[in-house]
């Protein structure tokens, strides 16, 4: 299968995602430019982390108007796999491909550290090699990662099992202390109703090789490959 990694002005995790796709899970991968008007037949599009358009106005607010985002929206509508990591998630929220919005971290600080997240839903193209309750050690690096959604919206997420990852302690306990940024319901990652769009604040591409301190992020990339190899069945 073929991954595509979009480069927006200010993306800075694009090469990390590219390297994991190419060298760690050994798949085809291509960079896509924000002004491109085609997704080059990629099977899974990654919106990487960074500070697209300098995070001006609101994180992701300007990137959503890039030429390539029209294609990403059509692709997602047709069931194509889209993964937004960190700033990529912020763009997906602004574009309306995922529900909710990001607020400033409650500490008001940029937080860059390893955290633990619990797999809440393993029945997705992105987590099918994980099991429910599995704890992954993956780093975060953001200032605006405090996930917010209305009470009604949160209930919908729960009902439709769209909550994919929640911040937890190393034993899987969902606690206030394990919530690094104030996110509602400890939410670290969500998917859309159709399960083909994932957004997560932690960076799996920074935790896919043991030399980087954790290989847990690799499960997500491998799950995507597995999903394709099994004929797009979860």
């Amino acid at each position: 299968m073929k991954f595509g990694v979009i480069i927006f002005p200010g993306s800075n995790c694009d090469y990390d995602a590219y390297m994991v796709a190419k060298n760690v899970i050994k798949q085809d991968v291509e960079f896509l430019w924000h002004q491109d008007t085609s997704l080059s037949n990629c099977d899974c599009v990654i919106l990487p982390g960074g500070f697209s358009y300098g995070d001006y106005l609101r994180t992701g607010a300007i990137a959503k108007f890039s030429s390539i985002m029209k294609k990403v929206m059509d692709f997602a509508q047709d069931g194509g796999l889209v993964v937004g990591i960190c700033n990529g998630l912020q763009i997906l929220l602004e574009a309306g491909l995922l529900p909710g919005a990001m607020l400033r971290n409650t500490s008001l600080r940029f937080i860059c550290k390893f955290v633990h997240i619990e797999v809440e839903n393993e029945n997705t193209p992105f987590t099918n090699l994980c099991h429910k309750g599995q704890v992954l050690k993956i780093p975060i690096a953001h200032t605006d990662g405090n996930y917010f959604i209305s009470e009604e919206g949160l209930n919908r997420l729960k009902q439709n099992q769209q909550i994919v990852f929640r911040y937890c302690d190393q034993f899987g306990g969902i606690t206030q202390e394990a919530n690094p940024n104030g996110s509602l319901y400890n939410i670290a990652g969500i998917c859309n109703e159709k399960r083909n769009v994932l957004g997560m604040m932690p960076h799996p591409e920074r935790a896919s090789e043991s030399i980087l301190g954790s290989e847990d992020g690799k499960h997500i990339f491998q799950s995507i490959v597995n999903f394709f190899e099994k004929g797009k069945q979860i």
Binding site: L103, R104, N105, T106, S107, L108, N146, F148, G182
Partner: peptide, 13 residues
């Protein structure tokens, strides 16, 4: 402005 009821960490600081 942030909507009423939406946490404003800057405002509270």
């Amino acid at each position: 402005k942030l909507k009423d009821g939406v946490l404003d960490p800057q405002g509270s600081t």
